[in-house]
Design a protein around this nucleic acid. Structure first.
Length: 449
RNA sequence: GGCGCAUUCGUCUAGGGGUCCAGGACGCCGCCCUCUCACGGCGGUAACACGGGUUCGAAUCCCGUAUGCGCUACCA
Protein backbone atom coordinates (compact mmCIF):
# COMPACT_ATOMS: atom_id res chain seq x y z
CA UNK A 1 0.00 0.00 0.00
CA UNK A 2 1.36 3.36 -0.87
CA UNK A 3 1.94 6.03 1.72
CA UNK A 4 -0.73 8.66 2.24
CA UNK A 5 -0.11 11.45 4.74
CA UNK A 6 -1.83 14.69 5.49
CA UNK A 7 -1.13 18.09 6.93
CA UNK A 8 -4.20 19.39 8.70
CA UNK A 9 -3.87 22.99 9.85
CA UNK A 10 -6.68 24.93 11.41
CA UNK A 11 -7.05 28.27 9.65
CA UNK A 12 -6.72 30.69 12.53
CA UNK A 13 -3.85 32.84 11.27
CA UNK A 14 -0.58 32.57 9.44
CA UNK A 15 1.24 29.25 9.42
CA UNK A 16 3.40 28.97 12.51
CA UNK A 17 6.88 27.52 12.46
CA UNK A 18 5.67 24.56 14.50
CA UNK A 19 2.97 23.83 11.96
CA UNK A 20 5.47 24.41 9.18
CA UNK A 21 7.81 21.84 10.69
CA UNK A 22 4.96 19.33 10.93
CA UNK A 23 4.04 20.06 7.32
CA UNK A 24 7.67 19.60 6.25
CA UNK A 25 7.98 16.25 7.99
CA UNK A 26 4.78 15.04 6.35
CA UNK A 27 5.92 16.32 2.99
CA UNK A 28 9.40 14.79 3.29
CA UNK A 29 7.92 11.48 4.38
CA UNK A 30 5.46 11.44 1.49
CA UNK A 31 8.09 12.36 -1.08
CA UNK A 32 10.59 9.89 0.31
CA UNK A 33 8.08 7.09 -0.12
CA UNK A 34 6.72 8.48 -3.39
CA UNK A 35 3.43 8.75 -1.59
CA UNK A 36 0.61 11.24 -1.46
CA UNK A 37 0.63 14.46 0.54
CA UNK A 38 -2.87 15.66 1.35
CA UNK A 39 -3.89 19.05 2.64
CA UNK A 40 -6.91 19.22 4.87
CA UNK A 41 -8.26 22.36 6.46
CA UNK A 42 -9.61 21.73 9.94
CA UNK A 43 -12.09 24.56 10.10
CA UNK A 44 -14.78 23.08 12.28
CA UNK A 45 -14.36 25.76 14.91
CA UNK A 46 -16.46 28.44 13.31
CA UNK A 47 -15.57 31.03 15.90
CA UNK A 48 -11.87 30.93 15.11
CA UNK A 49 -11.61 29.78 11.51
CA UNK A 50 -11.62 32.24 8.64
CA UNK A 51 -11.21 32.04 4.90
CA UNK A 52 -8.58 34.76 5.07
CA UNK A 53 -6.52 32.63 7.41
CA UNK A 54 -6.94 29.67 5.13
CA UNK A 55 -5.56 31.68 2.23
CA UNK A 56 -2.65 32.81 4.36
CA UNK A 57 -1.80 29.27 5.36
CA UNK A 58 -1.95 28.14 1.74
CA UNK A 59 0.30 30.99 0.69
CA UNK A 60 2.78 30.16 3.42
CA UNK A 61 2.88 26.53 2.33
CA UNK A 62 3.43 27.57 -1.26
CA UNK A 63 6.18 29.92 -0.22
CA UNK A 64 7.88 27.05 1.56
CA UNK A 65 7.49 25.02 -1.60
CA UNK A 66 5.49 22.23 0.02
CA UNK A 67 3.25 21.17 -2.80
CA UNK A 68 0.32 18.97 -1.93
CA UNK A 69 -1.16 16.28 -4.14
CA UNK A 70 -4.75 16.33 -2.91
CA UNK A 71 -6.92 19.00 -1.40
CA UNK A 72 -7.27 21.35 0.19
CA UNK A 73 -10.31 19.68 1.69
CA UNK A 74 -12.41 21.65 4.13
CA UNK A 75 -13.92 19.83 7.04
CA UNK A 76 -16.68 22.39 7.20
CA UNK A 77 -17.86 21.05 3.84
CA UNK A 78 -17.87 17.45 4.93
CA UNK A 79 -20.38 17.59 7.76
CA UNK A 80 -22.65 15.00 6.14
CA UNK A 81 -19.85 12.46 6.37
CA UNK A 82 -19.36 13.08 10.08
CA UNK A 83 -23.08 13.08 10.70
CA UNK A 84 -23.36 9.68 9.06
CA UNK A 85 -20.53 8.31 11.16
CA UNK A 86 -22.11 9.75 14.29
CA UNK A 87 -25.41 8.09 13.46
CA UNK A 88 -23.66 4.79 13.06
CA UNK A 89 -21.99 5.19 16.42
CA UNK A 90 -25.33 5.92 18.01
CA UNK A 91 -26.84 2.86 16.37
CA UNK A 92 -24.02 0.76 17.70
CA UNK A 93 -24.64 2.09 21.17
CA UNK A 94 -21.23 3.70 21.32
CA UNK A 95 -22.57 7.24 21.31
CA UNK A 96 -25.70 9.06 22.37
CA UNK A 97 -27.50 12.34 22.00
CA UNK A 98 -26.85 14.78 24.80
CA UNK A 99 -29.36 17.53 25.50
CA UNK A 100 -27.49 19.25 28.30
CA UNK A 101 -26.85 22.93 27.76
CA UNK A 102 -23.40 24.41 27.91
CA UNK A 103 -24.38 26.43 30.95
CA UNK A 104 -25.52 23.34 32.81
CA UNK A 105 -22.32 21.55 31.95
CA UNK A 106 -20.20 24.47 33.02
CA UNK A 107 -21.95 24.51 36.38
CA UNK A 108 -21.51 20.79 36.91
CA UNK A 109 -17.87 21.03 35.99
CA UNK A 110 -17.25 23.79 38.50
CA UNK A 111 -19.05 21.89 41.21
CA UNK A 112 -17.08 18.73 40.52
CA UNK A 113 -13.84 20.61 40.64
CA UNK A 114 -14.76 22.30 43.90
CA UNK A 115 -15.51 18.92 45.41
CA UNK A 116 -12.25 17.54 44.15
CA UNK A 117 -13.86 15.15 41.71
CA UNK A 118 -12.66 14.79 38.14
CA UNK A 119 -14.74 17.16 36.00
CA UNK A 120 -16.29 14.49 33.85
CA UNK A 121 -19.67 14.36 32.26
CA UNK A 122 -22.23 12.98 34.70
CA UNK A 123 -23.99 10.73 32.16
CA UNK A 124 -27.31 12.54 32.50
CA UNK A 125 -28.27 11.78 28.90
CA UNK A 126 -26.69 8.33 28.67
CA UNK A 127 -29.50 5.90 27.81
CA UNK A 128 -32.07 8.66 28.22
CA UNK A 129 -35.04 8.38 25.85
CA UNK A 130 -34.66 10.36 22.64
CA UNK A 131 -36.57 13.61 22.39
CA UNK A 132 -36.89 16.69 20.24
CA UNK A 133 -34.51 19.56 20.62
CA UNK A 134 -31.05 20.82 20.16
CA UNK A 135 -28.44 18.23 21.04
CA UNK A 136 -24.84 17.25 20.77
CA UNK A 137 -23.59 13.74 20.17
CA UNK A 138 -21.46 12.33 22.91
CA UNK A 139 -19.15 9.32 22.83
CA UNK A 140 -19.62 6.80 25.62
CA UNK A 141 -16.26 5.74 26.98
CA UNK A 142 -16.26 2.01 27.69
CA UNK A 143 -15.69 0.83 31.26
CA UNK A 144 -12.71 -1.30 30.47
CA UNK A 145 -10.15 -0.52 27.96
CA UNK A 146 -6.51 0.15 28.33
CA UNK A 147 -5.32 1.80 25.18
CA UNK A 148 -1.86 1.18 23.80
CA UNK A 149 -0.45 2.70 20.67
CA UNK A 150 2.85 2.11 18.96
CA UNK A 151 4.07 5.53 18.09
CA UNK A 152 6.75 5.60 15.41
CA UNK A 153 8.64 8.28 17.32
CA UNK A 154 7.73 7.65 20.95
CA UNK A 155 7.42 3.90 21.01
CA UNK A 156 4.74 2.24 23.08
CA UNK A 157 2.40 4.62 24.90
CA UNK A 158 -0.27 3.22 27.18
CA UNK A 159 -3.23 4.82 28.92
CA UNK A 160 -4.61 2.64 31.65
CA UNK A 161 -8.36 2.67 32.05
CA UNK A 162 -8.16 6.19 33.04
CA UNK A 163 -10.49 8.81 34.21
CA UNK A 164 -11.83 9.79 30.85
CA UNK A 165 -15.29 11.29 30.65
CA UNK A 166 -17.74 10.89 27.82
CA UNK A 167 -16.73 13.46 25.25
CA UNK A 168 -18.46 15.37 22.50
CA UNK A 169 -18.33 14.05 18.93
CA UNK A 170 -20.72 16.44 17.24
CA UNK A 171 -21.51 19.85 18.65
CA UNK A 172 -25.02 21.14 18.89
CA UNK A 173 -24.31 23.32 15.84
CA UNK A 174 -23.90 20.11 13.85
CA UNK A 175 -20.15 20.45 13.37
CA UNK A 176 -17.83 17.75 14.61
CA UNK A 177 -15.13 18.25 17.20
CA UNK A 178 -11.50 17.70 16.37
CA UNK A 179 -11.23 14.24 17.90
CA UNK A 180 -14.10 12.99 15.81
CA UNK A 181 -13.51 14.63 12.45
CA UNK A 182 -9.86 13.69 12.51
CA UNK A 183 -10.69 10.01 12.93
CA UNK A 184 -13.41 9.99 10.30
CA UNK A 185 -11.28 11.88 7.78
CA UNK A 186 -8.09 9.97 8.37
CA UNK A 187 -10.02 6.78 7.80
CA UNK A 188 -12.07 8.07 4.93
CA UNK A 189 -9.01 9.52 3.17
CA UNK A 190 -7.05 6.30 3.64
CA UNK A 191 -4.33 8.03 5.59
CA UNK A 192 -1.58 5.53 6.33
CA UNK A 193 0.61 7.67 8.60
CA UNK A 194 -0.52 10.40 10.94
CA UNK A 195 2.43 12.70 11.60
CA UNK A 196 1.41 15.51 13.91
CA UNK A 197 2.51 17.58 16.89
CA UNK A 198 2.92 16.11 20.35
CA UNK A 199 0.11 18.23 21.76
CA UNK A 200 -2.20 15.69 20.13
CA UNK A 201 -0.59 12.68 21.77
CA UNK A 202 -3.04 12.37 24.63
CA UNK A 203 -5.98 13.00 22.30
CA UNK A 204 -5.01 9.79 20.58
CA UNK A 205 -6.50 7.94 23.51
CA UNK A 206 -9.96 9.17 22.61
CA UNK A 207 -9.39 8.69 18.92
CA UNK A 208 -8.39 5.06 19.34
CA UNK A 209 -11.64 4.43 21.20
CA UNK A 210 -13.54 5.85 18.25
CA UNK A 211 -11.59 3.72 15.80
CA UNK A 212 -12.46 0.67 17.89
CA UNK A 213 -16.12 1.54 18.10
CA UNK A 214 -16.27 1.96 14.34
CA UNK A 215 -14.29 -1.19 13.73
CA UNK A 216 -11.66 0.71 11.80
CA UNK A 217 -7.95 0.09 11.91
CA UNK A 218 -5.73 2.78 13.39
CA UNK A 219 -3.16 4.34 11.05
CA UNK A 220 0.51 4.48 11.94
CA UNK A 221 1.11 7.31 14.38
CA UNK A 222 4.06 9.61 14.82
CA UNK A 223 3.98 12.45 17.32
CA UNK A 224 6.60 15.10 16.79
CA UNK A 225 7.74 17.12 19.79
CA UNK A 226 7.00 20.79 20.20
CA UNK A 227 9.13 23.77 19.21
CA UNK A 228 9.99 25.99 22.17
CA UNK A 229 11.08 29.57 22.67
CA UNK A 230 14.39 30.52 24.31
CA UNK A 231 12.76 30.21 27.76
CA UNK A 232 11.73 26.63 26.95
CA UNK A 233 8.02 27.32 26.92
CA UNK A 234 6.00 26.61 23.81
CA UNK A 235 6.97 29.03 21.06
CA UNK A 236 4.46 31.87 21.02
CA UNK A 237 4.04 35.44 19.91
CA UNK A 238 5.79 36.86 22.93
CA UNK A 239 8.99 35.19 21.72
CA UNK A 240 8.92 37.35 18.60
CA UNK A 241 8.40 36.05 15.08
CA UNK A 242 6.48 32.79 15.08
CA UNK A 243 4.92 32.61 11.63
CA UNK A 244 6.78 31.65 8.50
CA UNK A 245 5.54 34.76 6.74
CA UNK A 246 7.28 36.90 9.32
CA UNK A 247 10.52 35.13 8.53
CA UNK A 248 9.91 35.65 4.85
CA UNK A 249 9.44 39.35 5.56
CA UNK A 250 12.69 39.44 7.48
CA UNK A 251 14.63 38.19 4.48
CA UNK A 252 14.96 34.51 5.17
CA UNK A 253 14.92 32.18 2.20
CA UNK A 254 12.32 29.44 1.92
CA UNK A 255 15.07 26.95 1.22
CA UNK A 256 16.93 27.90 4.39
CA UNK A 257 13.73 27.85 6.40
CA UNK A 258 12.88 24.36 5.24
CA UNK A 259 16.44 23.22 5.86
CA UNK A 260 16.49 24.69 9.36
CA UNK A 261 13.08 23.37 10.37
CA UNK A 262 14.01 19.93 9.07
CA UNK A 263 16.97 20.01 11.43
CA UNK A 264 14.75 20.80 14.38
CA UNK A 265 14.07 17.32 15.67
CA UNK A 266 15.57 15.34 12.85
CA UNK A 267 19.15 14.55 11.97
CA UNK A 268 20.67 13.10 8.87
CA UNK A 269 22.37 9.72 9.39
CA UNK A 270 25.61 11.14 8.03
CA UNK A 271 25.42 14.31 10.13
CA UNK A 272 24.98 16.57 7.13
CA UNK A 273 23.32 19.83 8.15
CA UNK A 274 23.11 21.85 4.97
CA UNK A 275 21.17 20.05 2.32
CA UNK A 276 18.86 20.51 -0.63
CA UNK A 277 15.27 19.35 -0.59
CA UNK A 278 16.20 16.40 -2.75
CA UNK A 279 18.88 15.34 -0.30
CA UNK A 280 16.51 15.73 2.62
CA UNK A 281 13.85 13.69 0.82
CA UNK A 282 16.35 10.95 0.07
CA UNK A 283 17.56 10.72 3.66
CA UNK A 284 14.44 11.44 5.68
CA UNK A 285 13.01 8.81 7.96
CA UNK A 286 10.82 8.95 11.03
CA UNK A 287 13.10 6.75 13.09
CA UNK A 288 15.64 9.56 13.22
CA UNK A 289 13.18 12.03 14.63
CA UNK A 290 14.09 13.15 18.13
CA UNK A 291 11.63 12.79 20.99
CA UNK A 292 12.72 15.84 22.96
CA UNK A 293 11.29 19.29 22.31
CA UNK A 294 13.60 21.76 20.53
CA UNK A 295 14.33 25.42 21.14
CA UNK A 296 14.05 27.58 18.06
CA UNK A 297 17.50 29.15 17.63
CA UNK A 298 17.49 32.24 15.43
CA UNK A 299 21.28 32.42 15.47
CA UNK A 300 21.59 29.11 13.74
CA UNK A 301 18.84 30.03 11.30
CA UNK A 302 20.80 33.20 10.51
CA UNK A 303 23.93 31.21 9.91
CA UNK A 304 22.13 28.73 7.67
CA UNK A 305 20.39 31.49 5.76
CA UNK A 306 23.79 33.10 5.25
CA UNK A 307 25.16 29.84 3.91
CA UNK A 308 22.42 29.78 1.29
CA UNK A 309 22.97 33.42 0.34
CA UNK A 310 26.72 33.01 0.07
CA UNK A 311 26.38 29.98 -2.15
CA UNK A 312 23.79 31.47 -4.49
CA UNK A 313 24.76 33.52 -7.51
CA UNK A 314 23.95 37.20 -7.72
CA UNK A 315 21.53 36.53 -10.55
CA UNK A 316 19.63 34.03 -8.42
CA UNK A 317 19.61 36.41 -5.49
CA UNK A 318 18.58 39.55 -7.37
CA UNK A 319 14.88 38.72 -7.87
CA UNK A 320 14.58 37.66 -4.23
CA UNK A 321 16.39 40.69 -2.82
CA UNK A 322 14.67 43.21 -5.06
CA UNK A 323 11.43 43.03 -3.11
CA UNK A 324 13.29 44.53 -0.15
CA UNK A 325 15.63 46.91 -1.93
CA UNK A 326 15.86 47.69 -5.60
CA UNK A 327 18.30 49.63 -7.77
CA UNK A 328 19.25 49.14 -11.41
CA UNK A 329 22.71 47.90 -10.42
CA UNK A 330 21.43 45.51 -7.75
CA UNK A 331 22.86 42.35 -9.20
CA UNK A 332 26.35 43.80 -9.45
CA UNK A 333 26.03 45.14 -5.93
CA UNK A 334 24.86 41.82 -4.55
CA UNK A 335 27.85 40.13 -6.07
CA UNK A 336 30.15 42.55 -4.27
CA UNK A 337 28.66 42.34 -0.76
CA UNK A 338 26.84 39.03 -0.49
CA UNK A 339 29.38 37.35 1.80
CA UNK A 340 28.67 39.96 4.44
CA UNK A 341 24.93 39.34 4.37
CA UNK A 342 22.83 36.73 6.17
CA UNK A 343 19.36 37.96 5.29
CA UNK A 344 17.95 39.48 2.11
CA UNK A 345 16.94 42.61 3.98
CA UNK A 346 20.58 43.33 4.75
CA UNK A 347 21.57 44.10 1.17
CA UNK A 348 20.11 47.55 1.62
CA UNK A 349 22.50 48.48 4.41
CA UNK A 350 25.41 46.61 2.90
CA UNK A 351 25.08 48.68 -0.28
CA UNK A 352 24.12 51.96 1.32
CA UNK A 353 27.62 53.36 0.86
CA UNK A 354 27.01 53.68 -2.87
CA UNK A 355 24.24 56.23 -2.54
CA UNK A 356 25.08 57.79 0.78
CA UNK A 357 28.24 59.51 1.88
CA UNK A 358 29.44 61.53 4.85
CA UNK A 359 32.92 62.98 4.32
CA UNK A 360 35.24 61.55 6.97
CA UNK A 361 38.20 63.20 8.70
CA UNK A 362 41.18 62.47 6.51
CA UNK A 363 44.81 63.49 6.05
CA UNK A 364 44.88 66.62 3.89
CA UNK A 365 47.79 65.72 1.70
CA UNK A 366 46.28 62.33 0.91
CA UNK A 367 42.98 63.98 0.04
CA UNK A 368 44.74 66.35 -2.31
CA UNK A 369 46.60 63.56 -4.01
CA UNK A 370 43.39 61.59 -4.43
CA UNK A 371 41.57 64.61 -5.79
CA UNK A 372 44.34 65.27 -8.30
CA UNK A 373 44.29 61.63 -9.37
CA UNK A 374 40.55 61.62 -9.93
CA UNK A 375 40.59 64.95 -11.75
CA UNK A 376 43.21 63.88 -14.21
CA UNK A 377 42.25 60.24 -14.76
CA UNK A 378 38.62 59.97 -13.71
CA UNK A 379 37.18 57.36 -11.39
CA UNK A 380 37.98 53.70 -12.09
CA UNK A 381 35.11 51.81 -13.60
CA UNK A 382 36.61 48.34 -13.46
CA UNK A 383 39.32 46.27 -11.86
CA UNK A 384 42.02 47.30 -14.32
CA UNK A 385 41.25 50.96 -13.85
CA UNK A 386 41.32 50.52 -10.11
CA UNK A 387 44.75 48.93 -10.21
CA UNK A 388 46.14 51.71 -12.33
CA UNK A 389 44.76 54.28 -9.91
CA UNK A 390 46.37 52.50 -6.96
CA UNK A 391 49.73 52.46 -8.75
CA UNK A 392 49.61 56.19 -9.43
CA UNK A 393 48.51 56.92 -5.87
CA UNK A 394 51.41 54.89 -4.54
CA UNK A 395 53.83 56.99 -6.56
CA UNK A 396 52.16 60.27 -5.74
CA UNK A 397 51.90 59.72 -1.99
CA UNK A 398 54.72 57.30 -1.29
CA UNK A 399 52.22 55.26 0.72
CA UNK A 400 51.64 51.55 0.44
CA UNK A 401 49.80 48.73 2.13
CA UNK A 402 47.47 49.53 4.94
CA UNK A 403 48.47 53.18 5.17
CA UNK A 404 47.39 53.61 1.58
CA UNK A 405 44.28 51.49 1.52
CA UNK A 406 42.70 52.59 4.77
CA UNK A 407 42.55 56.31 3.89
CA UNK A 408 41.45 55.38 0.38
CA UNK A 409 38.66 53.20 1.76
CA UNK A 410 37.58 55.88 4.16
CA UNK A 411 37.69 58.60 1.52
CA UNK A 412 35.70 56.65 -1.04
CA UNK A 413 33.16 54.70 1.00
CA UNK A 414 32.99 56.81 4.14
CA UNK A 415 33.35 53.61 6.15
CA UNK A 416 36.18 51.88 7.93
CA UNK A 417 34.87 48.48 6.96
CA UNK A 418 33.32 47.08 3.85
CA UNK A 419 33.93 45.07 0.72
CA UNK A 420 37.25 44.88 -1.09
CA UNK A 421 38.05 48.23 -2.65
CA UNK A 422 38.82 46.69 -6.00
CA UNK A 423 35.17 45.76 -6.13
CA UNK A 424 33.65 48.58 -4.10
CA UNK A 425 35.11 51.49 -6.00
CA UNK A 426 33.93 50.44 -9.47
CA UNK A 427 30.48 50.14 -7.91
CA UNK A 428 30.55 53.86 -7.15
CA UNK A 429 30.05 54.72 -10.81
CA UNK A 430 26.39 53.94 -10.18
CA UNK A 431 26.21 56.70 -7.60
CA UNK A 432 26.89 59.29 -10.26
CA UNK A 433 24.43 57.74 -12.65
CA UNK A 434 21.68 57.71 -10.09
CA UNK A 435 22.32 60.85 -8.21
CA UNK A 436 23.50 63.40 -10.73
CA UNK A 437 27.15 62.81 -9.90
CA UNK A 438 26.79 64.36 -6.47
CA UNK A 439 28.22 61.19 -4.94
CA UNK A 440 30.66 60.23 -7.66
CA UNK A 441 34.19 59.42 -6.49
CA UNK A 442 35.33 62.84 -7.64
CA UNK A 443 32.54 64.57 -5.77
CA UNK A 444 33.45 62.63 -2.67
CA UNK A 445 37.08 63.57 -2.93
CA UNK A 446 36.15 67.22 -3.30
CA UNK A 447 34.17 67.14 -0.10
CA UNK A 448 37.17 65.89 1.81
CA UNK A 449 38.89 69.27 1.78
C1' G B 1 -5.13 17.65 41.07
C1' G B 2 -5.31 13.33 37.35
C1' C B 3 -3.19 11.25 32.95
C1' G B 4 0.66 11.40 29.29
C1' C B 5 5.41 12.90 27.15
C1' A B 6 10.28 14.64 27.70
C1' U B 7 15.38 15.50 30.10
C1' U B 8 23.45 14.76 26.51
C1' C B 9 27.75 21.30 25.83
C1' G B 10 24.17 28.16 26.21
C1' U B 11 21.30 26.11 21.58
C1' C B 12 20.37 22.06 17.66
C1' U B 13 22.01 17.19 17.93
C1' A B 14 25.15 12.05 17.44
C1' G B 15 25.04 8.10 20.58
C1' G B 16 20.52 2.16 21.81
C1' G B 17 25.70 -1.64 27.70
C1' G B 18 32.32 -1.74 26.74
C1' U B 19 35.19 1.45 20.77
C1' C B 20 32.63 7.89 25.16
C1' C B 21 37.60 11.03 30.79
C1' A B 22 31.10 11.56 25.05
C1' G B 23 31.41 13.16 18.42
C1' G B 24 29.39 17.10 14.96
C1' A B 25 26.90 22.00 14.09
C1' C B 26 25.49 27.15 15.74
C1' G B 27 27.28 30.70 19.31
C1' C B 28 31.56 32.40 21.93
C1' C B 29 37.18 32.83 22.25
C1' G B 30 42.01 32.50 19.76
C1' C B 31 45.12 31.86 15.40
C1' C B 32 45.72 31.97 9.95
C1' C B 33 44.22 34.36 5.31
C1' U B 34 43.86 39.71 4.33
C1' C B 35 44.00 47.02 2.76
C1' U B 36 39.32 46.71 6.73
C1' C B 37 34.87 44.04 7.78
C1' A B 38 32.87 39.73 6.14
C1' C B 39 33.73 34.94 3.81
C1' G B 40 36.96 30.82 4.26
C1' G B 41 40.62 27.59 6.97
C1' C B 42 42.62 25.83 11.72
C1' G B 43 42.29 25.31 17.02
C1' G B 44 39.91 26.04 21.85
C1' U B 45 35.64 26.50 25.50
C1' A B 46 31.45 23.75 27.07
C1' A B 47 27.06 18.52 28.41
C1' C B 48 25.15 12.71 29.88
C1' A B 49 19.16 16.69 35.56
C1' C B 50 19.49 14.11 40.54
C1' G B 51 19.18 9.52 43.57
C1' G B 52 18.82 4.43 43.76
C1' G B 53 19.16 -0.22 41.38
C1' U B 54 20.54 -4.23 37.31
C1' U B 55 25.49 -5.54 35.34
C1' C B 56 32.25 -7.40 35.48
C1' G B 57 30.90 -2.69 33.04
C1' A B 58 25.56 2.30 32.05
C1' A B 59 24.94 8.55 28.65
C1' U B 60 22.83 3.93 27.03
C1' C B 61 18.32 -0.85 30.78
C1' C B 62 14.79 -0.47 35.35
C1' C B 63 12.60 2.39 39.51
C1' G B 64 11.98 6.90 42.08
C1' U B 65 12.62 12.32 42.56
C1' A B 66 13.02 17.04 40.31
C1' U B 67 12.08 20.18 36.36
C1' G B 68 9.68 21.42 31.76
C1' C B 69 5.78 20.69 28.47
C1' G B 70 1.03 18.71 26.70
C1' C B 71 -3.97 16.96 27.48
C1' U B 72 -7.87 16.93 31.05
C1' A B 73 -13.54 22.10 26.29
C1' C B 74 -19.80 21.65 22.41
C1' C B 75 -10.48 24.60 20.70
C1' A B 76 -7.35 22.25 17.41
Amino acid sequence: MSVRVRFAPSPTGHLHVGGARTAIFNWLFARHHRGTFILRIEDTDQARSTRESEQMVLEDLRWLGLEWNEGPFRQSERTAIYQRAADELIERGAAYRCYCSEEELEEKRKKAEAEGRPPHYDLTCWQAPPREGKHAVRFHVPEVGDVTIHDLIRGEVTWRKESLGDFILVRSDGLPTYNFSVVVDDHEMDITHVIRAEEHLTNTHRQVLIYRAMGWSVPELAHVSLILGPDRSKLSKRHGATSVSQYADQGYLAEAMVNYLTLLGWSSPDGQETFTRQEAIAKFSLDRVNRAPAVFDVQKLDWLNGQYIHRMSASELRPLASSFFDVPWLEEGIDVVKTSVQRLTQFRDALAFVERYEPPQIDRSFAEALLAELRSHGAPRDEAGYKEMVERLKNATGLKGKSLFMPLRLAMTGMEHGPELVRAIPLLQHASEVDGSVLSPLARAERLL
